[in-house]
């Protein structure tokens, strides 16, 4: 059988010498290891690199933007310009102002900051939890499995919205980290079940047995073999969760839990701006655009990462 070669990693189908034969000087070759190989593969994926650049720019804008803007124009997301109520974009207020004269550009940057933070945190926590719980439950089986799955089922039947509503009430200003945690906490169960199912089939595979028989510990097997072999699933899940968490947060903000005025998130801005979308589109347009851009960049990068992790995918994609 002849398998096509990865065009990047190796040159050709080299004939393998029989026992005892040598080719070349083995000392010249650097053994790279997985991490560096994955990064190298990722770097070759243009779309993913573009998405990464966009994401980095968004993060930079979210972190440094507010300060810079205040320095240039003097406006922040809290102050009101009573001379400019509901004004369209201008040199003074780049994205215009709201009904009460708050600068929309400053708000958008602030919202981006919050939403990115909430989205990424929620995704990392929920997917991480799902992977760890699912893989351990599936691999260890027995009472660990039964206990963890009982927890999953319990969380699935608890009405999440009520819990968030009750807990989110009394938190006030500092409520968003708790909110993020709660969003994550109610988002991982289904994925955990899928991960457990996949683990059950991976567990019997010979490479897992081989690792076990060569003395690799249980966490070693889970983190080195099981989870990487489910990376496609996990990455897709994480990218979806980034988007859903941002949207969930906006929904909750709409009902008054989580981020509350004068603080803003992309979600709350969209919620506030949509009713007047036709008369004063600048109120939600920029926030909406950034939300779309963020989720798009996250999923393109996720795709690229998945391809880089899966040695078989380069070929299919022909990149």
């Amino acid at each position: 059988m002849s398998l096509p070669t990865d065009p990047f990693l190796a040159a050709d189908h080299r004939l393998v010498p029989s026992a005892g034969g040598r080719t070349g000087a083995p000392e010249d070759v650097v053994v790279l290891g997985r991490r560096r190989l994955v990064l190298a593969r990722l770097r070759r994926n243009r779309a993913a690199m573009a998405a990464l650049v966009v994401l980095v720019l968004l993060v930079v804008a979210a972190v440094l933007g507010p300060v810079t803007y205040r320095w240039i124009t003097g406006w922040g997301y809290i102050g009101q310009d009573r001379t400019a109520l509901l004004q369209p974009p201008s040199a003074e207020h780049w994205f215009g102002t709201t009904l009460i004269g708050v600068d929309v550009f400053a708000q958008t940057l602030r919202g981006l900051q919050k939403s990115l933070l909430i989205g990424f945190l929620a995704a990392v926590i929920s997917t991480g939890l799902a992977a760890v719980v699912g893989a351990f439950a599936g691999y260890l089986g027995g009472w660990v499995d039964r206990g963890l799955m009982w927890l999953v089922d319990l969380l699935l039947v608890i009405p999440a919205f009520l819990v968030v509503a009750v807990l989110g009430r009394g938190l006030g200003e500092a409520g968003w980290p708790v909110l993020t945690l709660l969003i994550a906490l109610f988002a991982w169960m289904i994925t955990a079940r899928i991960v457990r199912g996949t683990t059950l089939s991976l567990r019997e595979r010979e490479f897992v047995l081989a690792a076990r028989f060569s003395g690799v510990s249980v966490p070693g097997i889970v983190f080195r073999h099981l989870i990487p072999n489910m990376s496609s699933l996990l990455i897709i899940d994480a990218t979806i969760t980034v988007a859903t968490a941002i949207i969930a947060e906006s929904g909750l903000s709409y009902f008054g839990f989580g981020v509350r005025p004068p603080d803003v998130s992309l979600g709350s801005m969209i919620a506030v701006g949509t009713p007047s979308a036709f008369t004063s589109p600048w109120l939600f347009m920029f926030a909406g655009g950034l939300l779309v851009l963020t989720t798009l960049a996250v999923s393109v990068l996720g795709d690229g990462l998945r391809d880089a992790l899966d040695p078989g995918s380069t070929r299919r994609a022909g990149r």
Partner: peptide
């Protein structure tokens, strides 16, 4: 790893490949 690859008749370059790129033998 380099020594072992040599011992089983492969070359050190194989260390940076993935199993899918190799033949059954």
């Amino acid at each position: 790893v380099r020594d072992l690859l040599d011992l089983v008749g492969l070359s050190a370059e194989h260390a940076n490949r993935y199993p899918a790129d190799l033949s059954g033998g």
